[in-house]
Each structure stands twice: as structure tokens, then as C-alpha cells.
Amino acid sequence: MMRGKEQIFLLVAIVVAVALSFASGAFNRYYLGIAVDVGINIILAVSLNLINGHTGQFSLGHAGFMAVGGYTAAKLTLLYGALLPPAAQPFLFAAALLAGGLVAALAGLLVGVPSLRLRGDYLAIVTLGFGEIIRVIFQTSDFFGAATGLTGITKMTTFGWAWALAAVTVYVVACLVNSTYGRGFIAVHDDEIAASAMGINTVRYKVTAFVVGAFFAGIAGGLYAHHKLVLKPDGFDFVRSIEIVVMVILGGMGRTAGVICAAVILTILPELLRGVAEYRMIIYALLIIGLMLTRPQGLFTFGKKGGA
């Protein structure tokens, strides 16, 4: 009976996303833009949840992976976009996103290695450091536009792309979590010493979590680049990483459904607060404090822990 349940979810989600995307002319552009933001943030939050929630590592460098993916993808479409006919553009975009994801995954591998020796606050500071190093590299590299960043990126991210890829992310993370991988992740999260005594290769699971998480952050970066059309190194500082961490924590660490809800709410909330623009970040900060004081287990506790 299990056959295909997950696949059907994935297929339906992609079809709906693409269909809505074709009908997107009917929607207000402003709302559509926010909807794309939501899709991108879901990818970021769900992929970080794999590292911070399920596997219990503490990464503060997600924006760095996002930057790697974003810059890689944008550079590729900028270089080759003009050379290819319009019909080939979606394929170029797909290839650019994939390349961004893969380069970010490579960065994830690099960051995953310290996670083998460090934990807790020390791992947090090292991942934060990696994120900052990545930012400094982009900031100083003329190839990537240095401090001005990359401009003139073609608009390629649509509602369909963002949400279809969000569905893929959720699917992949859910499938991994509901397999020997997921149990390995959670075993590492719960008790590394007991896990290794039970034959669980903790190194392998930690690195896998970092690589897969970074891959999707890279994809999200590519989508972001072709949505905002401008990439600046400042946009990927550690405040951005913290925003993603907050989504994961409010969603209830390790609960995919809750994390998706948190990503949606925390993307829309600042837009709702536009009327009181000057106070909105203050309210955002107070919200974080208030929630931690009253509901530290996360805003949402529905959805099986570990599952999707």
C-alpha cells in the first residue's frame, strides 16, 4: 500500500506548481513575488532542518551555501544565456541550478569535515566562519563582481520553478528521513556514543546531512539569484543564516511540516508588517524572544518528529 504514496505527493505538487505558474499572469505581481520568496525559504528551511533538526548539528552557515549556489548559477546564465536560443533557456537554467547545488554540496563537504571533531557552540562558530569566508571570497573576487556583486541577471525563477523545487526538497528530505539514513541521522542527534557502539557510522551520517543540506541551499541560492536579479555579498551574511535557523527552531527542530509552516509565516509576516515598516524588525525580534520564552519547543508541534 505504501507504493508510490510519496511519489504521488511529489507529482501532484509539481503539476500544481507548474499549472499555477502558467496561470500566474492572472495574479498580482507583488503577491507572486512573495510566493516565490516563500518557496525559496521553504527549500532553505527544510534543508537546514536536515542538518540542525534531524542530525542535531548546529550550522550557522546556511547563507554561505546559498551564496555559493546563487553565484555559481547566476554566473553560468550570465555567461551562456546570450549564446543560446530562447527555447534552450529553461534547460540552461536547470543546468545552472544543478551546478549551483553541486558546488554548494562540495562546500558542504568541506564544512562537514570539522563537524566530525567539533560540536555545539564550537561547530556553530566554525560554520559561521565558513559562511563569512565564503562571503569575503565573493566580496573580493572581481570575477564575481566584488562588492557590487552580480547584476543584470535574467529573470528565470517563476512560481513553478520555486514551488516544484520546494516539493522536490521536501520529498528528498522526507524520503531520506524515513530510511536507514533518517534513523542514522536521528541516532547521531540523540547520542553519538551509543550510535557508534551500535555500528552506526556517525561520520558518514553527519557528512551526508551537510552535503545534502548544502546542495538544496545551493539550489535555493540559484532560484534567489534569478528572482531578485541582483546578487550582493552583503545579502548572505550571518544575519541571513540566523533567519533560516529561526525558521527551523520555530517550526520545531526535526519536524518537516512545522518547519514548512514557519518558513511560510516568517516570509509573509514582514510583508504584513509593511504598514508599520519602521517597527517591523523590532516586532520580529520581540517575536523571537517571546516565542522562545513561551514556546521553546517550536510554534508547531504537529507532524511526527523525524518524519514529514
Partner: peptide
């Protein structure tokens, strides 16, 4: 014990040792 796991998953996790699945199998189900 693995604190966030059920009784069943505690045992199942210890059982997987050298029988971990491949990523492809986990994704394609």
C-alpha cells in the same frame, strides 16, 4: 537509549549497521 526514538526504532536502528540503504534506493522507494 536513543531518546527521541520509539522502542521499535531503537532496535531497528541498531539492526541497520552494515545494511544501510543507498541514497538512490531511499529516494526511489
Amino acid at each position: 537509549l536513543f531518546a527521541s526514538m520509539t522502542v521499535f526504532d531503537n532496535v531497528r536502528t541498531a539492526m541497520q549497521g552494515n545494511r544501510a540503504q543507498r541514497v538512490r534506493d531511499a529516494l526511489l522507494r
